[in-house]
Computed example of a mutant assay.
Amino acid sequence: MTETATVAGGCFWCTEAVFEEIEGVESVTSGYAGGHVEDPSYEAVCSGETGHAECVQVEYDPDVISYEDVLTVHFATHNPTTRDREGPDVGSQYRSAVFYHDDAQREAVEAFVDDLEAEYDDPIVTEIEPLETFYPAEDYHQDYYENNPDQAYCTVNIDPKLSKLNDQFRELVA
C-alpha cells in the first residue's frame, strides 16, 4: 500500500531526480498542479500564464519512509525562502509548494513548516494548498535526469542536489 505526496521546489527535473534516489519511493511523476487551466502543456506552464507549478507526485511506501521524511528531503533540497525562484529558474511555475492530499497531510506540513521556520533568516514562502488536480507532464520530462545525465542543466543544477542528498541523508538513499 503506497501513499502520495505532491511537492514543488523549482524545476521538476531536479525534484524528480532527488526523490528517485530515496528508499521507499516507488515512483515519481513530473507534472503540473495549482493552476487554473485544464490539461496544460509545458510551453503554457512556462509562460507563467496558467498558474501551475512544476511539481512531482511521489508514490512512497509509508512502512519504509514517512511523510515527514518526504517533507525533510523536499525542504532540504530546495530554497523555501525564495518566491518564484529556484537557482537559475525564475517564475511562478518554479515556486515552492506542498499540495496536500488530505487534512492529515495539511496538518503535518503546517507543523513541519512552523518548526522549520527557526532555521532560516528569511521567512519560508512555501505555498501550502490542497491538491485539486495533478497533470502529468509530457513523456520527455519523465525520468529526465536518468535519461540525460550529461546534459548541461543536469550537471550544473541536479548533480549538486544529489551530492547534498547523499551527504545529508545517507540513511534515506536507496
Rank of each mutant, 00 (worst) to 15 (best):
G34N: 08
A53Q: 12
L162Y: 11
V45W: 10
V113D: 06
S30Q: 06
E119D: 15
E16M: 00
D103M: 12
D63T: 13
A8S: 04
H78C: 06
D167I: 04
D115C: 03
T29I: 13
T77E: 05
A5Q: 06
V56N: 07
Q151E: 15
E138I: 03
P123Q: 11
A111N: 14
T15R: 02
A104I: 14
D139T: 04
N79V: 14
E38T: 14
E110A: 11
C11H: 07
G91F: 02
Y153N: 06
D61Y: 03
P160D: 12
A53K: 10
S30N: 09
S96C: 04
K161M: 13
Q93C: 05
G35A: 07
V73C: 00
V28S: 00
G35C: 09
P149M: 05
E132D: 14
T2L: 09
E54H: 07
V56R: 01
V58I: 15
L131K: 12
F134A: 07
S27E: 03
G24E: 02
C55G: 06
G48M: 04
Y32H: 05
K164W: 10
G35N: 10
P62N: 11
E38K: 13
T2D: 05
E20C: 01
N148T: 11
K161N: 11
D115E: 14
Q93K: 06
D84A: 11
H52D: 10
A111R: 15
N157R: 14
T29W: 03
A174G: 10
A53N: 13
Y145H: 13
V73P: 01
E3I: 02
T29D: 04
D114C: 05
D159P: 05
G31Y: 03
I124H: 07
A118Y: 10
T72W: 07
A53S: 15
F19W: 01
R106T: 09
W13L: 02
G34W: 08
R83W: 08
V45L: 07
V25S: 00
I158N: 06
F75Q: 07
G51I: 11
E129Q: 13
F75A: 02
V58D: 01
A76D: 15
A8E: 01
D61V: 02
A104N: 14
T82R: 05
E43D: 11
G24V: 00
D89S: 12
A53R: 08
D115H: 06
D159L: 11
E119V: 08
V45A: 06
D139H: 08
G31L: 02
Y60T: 00
P88V: 09
S47F: 06
C154D: 12
E43H: 00
Y140G: 04
V7Q: 02
T4N: 10
E171I: 03
A152R: 13
E117M: 12
T50V: 07
H78F: 12
S30W: 00
Y140A: 02
M1S: 11
E21T: 01
